[in-house]
Write a protein that binds this DNA or RNA. Sequence first.
DNA 1: TTCAACCTATACCGATCTGTATACTTTTGT
DNA 2: ACAAAAGTATACAGATCGGTATAGGTTGAA
Lengths: 200, 200
Amino acid sequence: MESVPSPRRVVLTPGARRALDAAGRLFYERGIHAVGVDLIATEAGVTKKTLYDRFGSKEQIVVEYLADRDERWRAFLAGHLDTAGDSPGRRLTAIFDASREWTAENSAKGCSMVNAHAEISDPAHPAYAVIVGQKRWMLDLFAGVCRDASVRDPETLARTVMLLHEGALVSHGLQVFPEAVQLASDQASALLAAAAGPAR
Amino acid sequence: MESVPSPRRVVLTPGARRALDAAGRLFYERGIHAVGVDLIATEAGVTKKTLYDRFGSKEQIVVEYLADRDERWRAFLAGHLDTAGDSPGRRLTAIFDASREWTAENSAKGCSMVNAHAEISDPAHPAYAVIVGQKRWMLDLFAGVCRDASVRDPETLARTVMLLHEGALVSHGLQVFPEAVQLASDQASALLAAAAGPAR
DNA sequence: TTCAACCTATACCGATCTGTATACTTTTGT
DNA sequence: ACAAAAGTATACAGATCGGTATAGGTTGAA
């Protein structure tokens, strides 16, 4: 039903999988340009030859890193949505619950897509599509929930929820204040209830 | 009244000023680690010796870049706030108006502090204080406005406005949808009005 | 006038970067 | 059993990195 956005061309052999895991951790924690391929190889316990036999270039490792992380996030989110039922309110809460758990476990430094975007200047870079694709997909997801809630202006509400969500990821990463995702969740739910309530 | 948070130790001679301007543009557009000191020197029309005589290290150039940008943003914002009067509603609008103009002119790739944070892993890095300092200062600014509005829970409202603001900067930088800052402004104003309205 | 501050020009250093080459070993499916 | 795939180990290439050294030129104020 849905087109798979992953531009993956790499077969993940055991060595490639370990390399991708190590690269993902290092890229996220230290930044993409600050991590060299030698370090990735050492941390993964593979040789540089294996890296280049599987991925071909560092750029491709970066693309796989983002595509893999996007894939895992969507699967994690799908697990939460599957148990949320059909109520728009519950579905919205499920999304933010997933974000709260995900950020607590895997996103102490904020959104990996936003962070990667900070280091990539060329819009023709293949990672760009992955980054922008996830954001557009999240906006579409919010829009679907808002449309199902029969609010007056679902697109505007979805965009506002998107602002709260993105703002929470940033605020969490920079530790501006605690429980940012929970606050965003509460405020988004309140907005949805206020917009859907009067129509009932 | 307010302590100046700038950790600046550098005298900005004409050559240093040109270097800092070039570094700022390059760091923001391409990322910090992707820009070498040779490129900065070439673009600024100075020699590397001048760079190191004035700044001492690339790390210090990074700190000056962020501190300078923070300083210019605060001055730009102060200009808008000075003409806004004392009304909390007008002051909030003035902040978002400033953000809207600033992002349109100087922040096509999102918040420079957030982007720099993505490339810095060590919390002991001197740039960290500048980055986190600006976010905390913005939150305090929102909190002051909300307190003046006599709303029930000014701290929570300020944090919510912060989420909208940060989310708008990210969404603008990633071009998730157009006019993100304007939407954040409208939503923040609506929240303030809703929270202050019933008490009047 | 003289001295210090500021600057250009150029060459260099050791380290690190992405990527490749060569030779050999292990695993795996048929 | 055998061949292809996947892996290790190591060395190396060319470029670029941050940073330094040396020598000389320009400017402005005491």
